[in-house]
C-alpha cells in the first residue's frame, strides 16, 4: 500500500503558496544554483522570458523530503520542476520549452501581467 504523502498541513501550505504568488517554481536547488539540468532549463527559459525569479516564490524540494514527494501528489505530476502561474499548474520543463518555442509562454506571461 502506498503511503499517503501529502499531509493536510502541507496541502494548505501549497494551496496558499500557489494562490498568493503570481509565479511559483518547485525545483531542485535554487535559481542561483540549480542542481539538476531540468530545473536549470526551467530557470533559464523563465529568465529569457524576462521573469525575475528573485521576485517570485521558489521552493527547493531537495531541502524538504515531504515537499519533494507531496508536490507530486498535489499536482498529480510525477517530476520536478513544476511551474504554477496565478494558481494554475502549467507543467514541467518539456511543456515550458515547448511553450517558449511556440510563443505561447510569452503570451501567457504577458496576459497574466508578468
Amino acid at each position: 500500500v502506498r503511503a499517503r504523502l501529502l499531509s493536510n498541513s502541507l496541502r494548505s501550505k501549497l494551496d496558499k503558496a500557489v494562490k498568493n504568488n503570481d509565479l511559483v517554481l518547485f525545483m531542485k536547488g535554487t535559481p542561483d544554483q540549480p542542481l539538476c539540468g531540468f530545473s536549470r532549463a526551467a530557470v533559464q527559459i523563465l529568465g529569457v522570458q524576462g521573469v525575475d525569479l528573485t521576485k517570485h516564490k521558489t521552493f527547493n524540494v531537495l531541502e524538504d523530503d515531504e515537499l519533494r514527494e507531496g508536490i507530486k501528489e498535489y499536482s498529480s505530476w510525477p517530476t520536478i520542476p513544476q511551474v504554477y502561474i496565478k494558481g494554475e499548474f502549467i507543467g514541467g520543463t518539456d511543456i515550458l520549452l515547448n511553450m517558449h518555442q511556440s510563443g505561447d509562454l510569452e503570451e501567457l506571461l504577458s496576459s497574466k501581467g508578468l
Binding site: 531540468f38 498529480s76 505530476w77 510525477p78 507543467g91 514541467g92 518539456d94 511543456i95 515547448n98
Partner: peptide
Amino acid sequence: SLLERHRLVNEKLKDEIAKIHAFSQK
C-alpha cells in the same frame, strides 16, 4: 492540450516514470 497530453502519458506510464530518474516527453 499539451498539458492534457503529458498528463495522459504520465498516467499511463505511472509505474515506469516512478522508477526512471529523468523522463522527458514530446
